[in-house]
Design a protein around this nucleic acid. Structure first.
Lengths: 249, 249
DNA sequence: ACTTCGTCGACTGCCTACAGCATACAATGA
DNA sequence: TCATTGTATGCTGTAGGCAGTCGACGAAGT
């Protein structure tokens, strides 16, 4: 009967189940970490977080495990959770991995991208350059991130997209100063990349992307002034009195 | 005082805390999935698993979340956990990602590897070829996996190692038939790879590794006979009576 | 003083319990 | 006969609580 099908059609928009608490805790804690309210190395006490966020310990625990698998916190069985303190070395290695992954993204995108995709890439370029001209760093970083993400999406490899996203989450912190430093040149490179993708020049696109991301990496090194081999976390672990401290790694 | 330092030195071996239950549950379930006892698509009921494994639901939940982040099971909030049913497309994409990641591994290894590392690689080759000659597929697969892993370790990039391991876990299933098919040729390629690494020929090593893993990927396609674009899971989801079924994705 | 031992508080890991929703099935009406 | 509504049951999400262990601190012994 058509009424049935119609009804089903109307219900097709998935019913949004209430978001589990663990998801919301995850979001909240991510923001607390980004904002620096939870300092790198700091010991995260489940009961405190639970009280602060107004939930029980269980969703907090589950959120912590999520955060752990995303690299935001380190979990030491029996000792608790600690805000992850990235070392310059780790960031450098992440940027190196990003370089090869996105190189492959560009290569695949060059074989697959259609006119629509190209148009969207160009528009993101416009947005980014407009933000640059307006000295609006936040929007420039956002446009940049979305452009890179979208290239990977155009690669048609969802696993690749997944990995790139993982890397991206863990280095997003460091983009702002880099973006400020790289400025105009970065967007010129984007333009060339898009041209190569449009023309289906796979190797050239891959090459451009690799060099582009490699320069980002160099920018990070210059900007941070850190020894890329340093194993020292940038922020020293916080120790408060009567607080469990991290055991020897 | 030296006695103090001595004592600390002796304690330096980390105290092995009893392995948390969630870890053991994780292991157990991984094996159940690999052995096929838990079929792809099957709904995993927390209380059943808890009873089977003799623990409460909590560690089971935590193990499920671990398995989720490692790609073994899919978690749908409010609906429960389902054994991940990989599609040929997904496996193909994973192998494609592995290809670029390990290519980079080889490149870096060629710049860093020392004599000791090279020797270990050669030994793994010996082991693998011996296993091949003895028609011992399991050991051959193991040697192959360890060789690839060790190349990445030699790259000196721990993040890269982490990512390669992730990919590896998710495709390990499929190695056995491939290894059987590729046989001798695979180990010849390994030898050439090691030579290139030893000689510090970075680009050549990377090239060899990319082609080597690319051939693995092609072998998978041939062996499985599946359309790499198929979105259909290889094993149909199991539905039992009175069982919660997967909601529309 | 310096070390060693014991005590205390704190936190994690795990368990049990309960509320609410989802599904399957039966009953009801057209 | 088919669609719809009601009902029972299973399962997830969350709360709260308890035992074991770790770390800090102080007391006692050397």
């Amino acid at each position: 009967m058509q009424s049935t099908e119609l009804a089903q059609g109307m219900l097709e928009r998935r019913i949004d189940r209430p978001v589990p608490l663990r998801e919301r805790v995850y979001q909240a804690m991510q923001e607390l970490i980004i904002s620096g309210e939870l300092a790198p190395g700091q010991h995260l006490v489940e009961s405190e977080l639970a009280e602060t966020l107004g939930v029980s310990r269980q969703p907090v625990r589950e959120a912590l495990q999520l955060l752990n698998s995303d690299g935001w916190v380190d979990l030491r069985p029996g000792y608790g959770a600690f805000v992850h303190a990235p070392t310059p070395k780790e960031v450098d290695q992440l940027l190196a991995v990003r370089c090869v992954l996105e190189g492959e993204s560009a290569r695949l995108a060059a074989t697959l991208a259609d006119a629509e995709g190209i148009a969207k890439l160009r528009e993101l370029c416009d947005q980014g350059e407009a933000a640059l001209a307006a000295d609006d760093v936040d929007n420039m970083v956002a446009a940049n991130a979305e452009l890179h993400r979208y290239v990977t999406e155009l690669s048609g490899n969802e696993v690749l997209l997944d990995f790139v996203t993982q890397v991206d989450r863990r280095v997003r912190w460091y983009y702002t100063p880099i973006a400020r430093q790289r400025g105009t040149q970065s967007w010129q490179e984007h333009r060339k990349l898009i041209d190569a993708i449009e023309n289906g020049e796979t190797e050239k696109a891959a090459q451009i992307m690799r060099e582009h991301t490699e320069r980002t990496r160099e920018s990070y090194l210059k900007e941070s002034g850190d020894d890329p081999n340093s194993e020292e976390p940038k922020a020293a672990p916080v120790r408060t009195r009567r607080r469990r401290t991290a055991p020897p790694a």
